[in-house]
Each structure stands twice: as structure tokens, then as C-alpha cells.
Amino acid sequence: MNIQTISLIISDSLMVTKQVILATLGKLVTKKSGMLNLGVVEGMSFAVLYHGCLTSTNN
């Protein structure tokens, strides 16, 4: 494996995990605010992943 392959793997993995991290941070904010939102995991994850994929493909 050369350095280009390794850097490509790292950048792709960061692009994929960015959306999951944002959804998790949204869940933490709603939990800390004291609001009980049972659909937060599915709804926020779907919204963040959808918009993240849209913005990553438009670059």
C-alpha cells in the first residue's frame, strides 16, 4: 500500500463517519436540554446522513 491509497482510505472513512458523529451530537444536545424525543436517533440520523450524502456528492 502506498501513501496515496492510505490517505484515500482515511479521507473516505472520515467522510462516512462525519454524518454519524453529527447525528450523535444532535442526540446529546436534545438529551442535555431535558427533552425526551424518542424518534431522535432514527430521524436525526436519517436527516444528517441524507444531507451529508447530498453535500459530499456535490463537491
Score class of each variant (00 low, 15 high):
Leu14Thr: 14
Thr17Lys: 07
Glu42Pro: 05
Tyr50Leu: 15
Met44Gln: 04
Thr17Val: 14
Ser11Trp: 06
Val16Met: 04
Ser56Asn: 11
Met44Val: 09
Met1Gln: 06
Val41Gly: 03
Ser45Ala: 12
Leu54Thr: 10
Gly26Glu: 00
Leu36His: 09
Gly39Trp: 08
Met15Tyr: 12
Val29Ile: 14
Val41Leu: 11
Gly34Lys: 04
Tyr50Ile: 13
Met35Glu: 08
Lys27Pro: 00
Thr57Glu: 02
Phe46Cys: 11
Val48Ser: 05
Val48Pro: 00
Val16Arg: 01
Asp12Thr: 13
Thr30Trp: 07
Gly43Asn: 09
Met1Gly: 13
Thr55Lys: 15
Val29Trp: 06
Leu25Ser: 11
Leu36Asn: 08
Ser7Gln: 02
Glu42Gln: 15
Leu54Ile: 12
Ile21Leu: 12
Phe46Ser: 12
Gly52Trp: 04
Lys27Gly: 12
Thr17Leu: 13
Leu25Ala: 15
Gly52Thr: 02
Ser56Trp: 10
Leu25His: 11
Ala23Thr: 03
Val16Ser: 06
Asn58Phe: 05
Asp12Ala: 11
Leu49Thr: 07
Lys31Asp: 06
Lys32Asp: 08
Thr55Ser: 14
Ile6Ser: 08
Asn2Lys: 07
Thr17Cys: 11
Ser56Met: 11
Ser7Gly: 00
Thr17His: 07
Ser45Thr: 13
Met15Gly: 14
Leu22Ser: 01
